[in-house]
Each structure stands twice: as structure tokens, then as C-alpha cells.
Simulated scan of single mutants.
Amino acid sequence: MNPVEATFVPKKKMTLEEASSEDTAKLYLETNELKEFLSYVDKHRNIIYRTLIYAIAFTGMRPGEAVALKYEDVDLEKKVIHINKTVYAKKSIRGDFELTPPKTAGSIRSVDIDNIVVEKLKQLYKWREYREWAKSDFVFGDKEGIPPIVKMLNQTVRRIGALTDINKQFRTYILRHTHISLLAEAGVDLNFIMNRVGHKNSDTTTKIYLHVTSGMRMAATERMHDKFTELLEE
């Protein structure tokens, strides 16, 4: 008999201070900050990195999931991406990688994509065809058909972020977190967001969600107060 078989270890509950802290706000870009960042992304010379950054920011994919995408995983007509693998590159050497299952079983999912992503992908497809790049199964394959290294993508995001006036730590995951904040700001349910980004449980997702929605509630409260005050003054 295992004496700890039926034990239950409670998870630490998140405090309001944690959900509303300045540290949480640094995990993602505000809408105006994302707009500024993307204005510099549009000027970047490499179309693969430009498209990758847009794809992650507007789908919430993990960087490795995005790099691993193949043409068969993307349906531009139905506007959906099927995520079922990720890239594992132990030494971060170009072309030296293997495709593995995603981080968890819940990470295998299908994600609806916006027209913005659809158009960016179409532009990439046309660019590859026009430049007569080598045929590749990978959506983000370069002129030789090899997908980029996640580490290089991370460095690119950092370099572009350094051009902005935004005082936040730029790395690829800030794009994924920004997507979570955008969905929260749009009033999307937390469970739906979890499913979309492939999270079963995530303190980070919950922190961002609560932080964004608490700000929305404060703004709504202020508007209600102004409205009620106006009503009483009439």
C-alpha cells in the first residue's frame, strides 16, 4: 500500500498583489507598444522573421511550434493552423534539429487565424516562389528549405525591441504573452485562451488575464461612476 496515494497537495493561491503587480505588466506589450514594435518589424529585411513574429503575436504559438509548421499544417482557405509538433535543437546549429511532439498533450490543437496572418503567409509563399527558393515542407524554410533556429528568432526579437522606446525585456515569449493579453482585453474567456495557447494550467496566463481584466474593470467602474454622477446632476 502506498500511504501517499490519496494525498492532495494544494496549489498556492495567487494574491491580488501578484495579479496586479508591475512585474506582470512587463510580461506582455500593451496595444500601443505592440503597434510600435510591429512598425519596426515591418522594416526588418528578412521576410521569414517578419512573418514568424506576426504569426506568433496573432496566434499565441510557442516559438518552437511556429518554426516546426509545415504546409500540411496550414489551411489558408479555412483560416486554421494545426499544431502537433515542435522543434528540438539541442545545440542551436542551423539544420541540426528534430521534430518532437509538443510540450504536453494539451498542446496539440487547432488555432483559428486572422486575415492579417493569412495575408502575411500568402506574401511569404509568393516571395518564395518568385525568388525560386528550394522546395521545402516547412512554412518558414529559408532559400535552402531550412527553418530558422529559435535562438536566432529570439535574438531578432531582442534587436528589433531595442529600436523601440519600450522599456521591457524583449524575447520571443513576450509575443505569446501579448496574444494572451489581447484576448483578455477583447473579453475572451480564460478557458478559451488556455485552450488556444495550449495551456492546461499556467500561472503566467492567469496572471496576465487577471491583470488585464482587473484594469478593464477599473476603467468600467470609472465610466459607471461618471455616468451615475451625470444622472444625479440632471
Rank of each mutant, 00 (worst) to 15 (best):
residue 4 V to Q: 12
residue 6 A to M: 08
residue 8 F to T: 09
residue 11 K to G: 08
residue 11 K to Q: 14
residue 13 K to Q: 10
residue 16 L to Y: 12
residue 18 E to S: 12
residue 19 A to S: 13
residue 20 S to A: 05
residue 23 D to S: 13
residue 24 T to P: 05
residue 25 A to S: 15
residue 29 L to F: 10
residue 30 E to N: 12
residue 34 L to N: 10
residue 36 E to P: 06
residue 36 E to C: 03
residue 39 S to I: 14
residue 40 Y to P: 00
residue 40 Y to S: 10
residue 42 D to A: 12
residue 42 D to Y: 05
residue 43 K to G: 06
residue 45 R to M: 02
residue 45 R to S: 15
residue 47 I to Q: 04
residue 56 I to R: 01
residue 56 I to D: 12
residue 57 A to H: 03
residue 59 T to F: 01
residue 60 G to H: 06
residue 60 G to Y: 03
residue 61 M to Q: 07
residue 62 R to E: 09
residue 63 P to R: 06
residue 73 D to E: 06
residue 84 N to R: 04
residue 90 K to R: 07
residue 92 S to C: 04
residue 92 S to Y: 09
residue 93 I to F: 03
residue 94 R to L: 09
residue 103 K to W: 02
residue 105 A to C: 02
residue 106 G to S: 14
residue 106 G to E: 13
residue 108 I to Q: 11
residue 109 R to V: 05
residue 111 V to D: 12
residue 111 V to T: 08
residue 113 I to P: 10
residue 115 N to E: 15
residue 115 N to T: 09
residue 117 V to T: 05
residue 125 Y to V: 07
residue 125 Y to D: 10
residue 128 R to I: 02
residue 129 E to F: 01
residue 130 Y to I: 05
residue 130 Y to M: 06
residue 132 E to V: 06
residue 132 E to K: 13
residue 133 W to T: 04
residue 134 A to F: 00
residue 135 K to L: 06
residue 135 K to D: 12
residue 136 S to M: 02
residue 141 G to P: 00
residue 143 K to L: 01
residue 143 K to H: 10
residue 144 E to C: 00
residue 148 P to Q: 02
residue 154 N to Q: 03
residue 154 N to V: 02
residue 156 T to A: 00
residue 157 V to G: 01
residue 162 A to F: 02
residue 162 A to R: 11
residue 162 A to Y: 03
residue 163 L to F: 00
residue 165 D to T: 12
residue 165 D to R: 06
residue 166 I to A: 08
residue 170 F to K: 03
residue 170 F to A: 05
residue 174 I to Q: 05
residue 176 R to N: 12
residue 179 H to G: 06
residue 180 I to V: 14
residue 181 S to T: 08
residue 182 L to W: 05
residue 186 A to G: 11
residue 193 I to W: 01
residue 195 N to R: 10
residue 200 K to F: 04
residue 201 N to F: 03
residue 208 I to Y: 11
residue 213 T to F: 10
residue 216 M to L: 15
residue 218 M to C: 05
residue 218 M to G: 14
residue 226 D to R: 11
residue 228 F to S: 11
residue 230 E to K: 13
residue 232 L to D: 15
residue 232 L to A: 11
residue 233 E to P: 01
